[in-house]
């Protein structure tokens, strides 16, 4: 078995600050994962379809604009709707503490806020990859 973990990285909404998502994508590459980077200003529909077509194990969302409470749950909903039952969604960006419980309730399993280290992201993926279905 040479199972490779595939991760889709995306920036939903209208925010163009992609330094963080690029840094994490690069670090994930160096940690041995296959990262599909879809770029900035993605609609929830486009992200969900990409996640299915690419058959990814994880989807990482980055958002610094404040629209996370609207966009993240919608993306999770669409991923599930198109058949990605087991895809694990995590997120990063400027997200206030008080919003985290709401996002977790809506299927965003981990949220990395400013100051989080890459190791925390890598640990999250390592700990959760055994849950993957195939």
């Amino acid at each position: 078995m040479r199972r490779k973990i595939r991760i889709l990285m995306a920036k939903p909404g209208l925010d163009g600050h992609d330094r963080g998502v690029k840094y994490i994508s690069r670090a994930l590459r160096d940690a041995g994962y296959e990262v599909i980077y879809t770029g900035i200003r993605q609609s929830p529909e486009a992200i969900a379809h990409a996640a299915i077509q690419e058959d990814v194990d994880f989807v990482g969302l980055s958002l610094l604009s404040g629209a996370h409470n609207e966009l993240f749950p919608e993306i999770v909903r669409l991923i599930r709707k198109y058949g990605g039952e087991s895809i694990i969604v995590f997120a990063g960006g400027i997200i206030p503490e008080k919003d985290i419980p709401f996002l977790k309730e809506h299927g965003v399993e981990a949220i990395f806020t400013p100051g989080a280290s890459f190791k925390e992201v890598a640990d999250f993926i390592e700990q959760n990859k055994r849950r993957l279905s195939h």
């Binding site: 994508s25 690069r26 994930l28 590459r29 160096d30 940690a31 041995g32 994962y33 296959e34 990262v35 599909i36 980077y37 879809t38 770029g39 990409a50 690419e54």
Partner: peptide
């Protein structure tokens, strides 16, 4: 690992 960026 890899960064797959063509899709962008």
């Amino acid at each position: 690992g890899a960064i797959l960026g063509d899709r962008l």
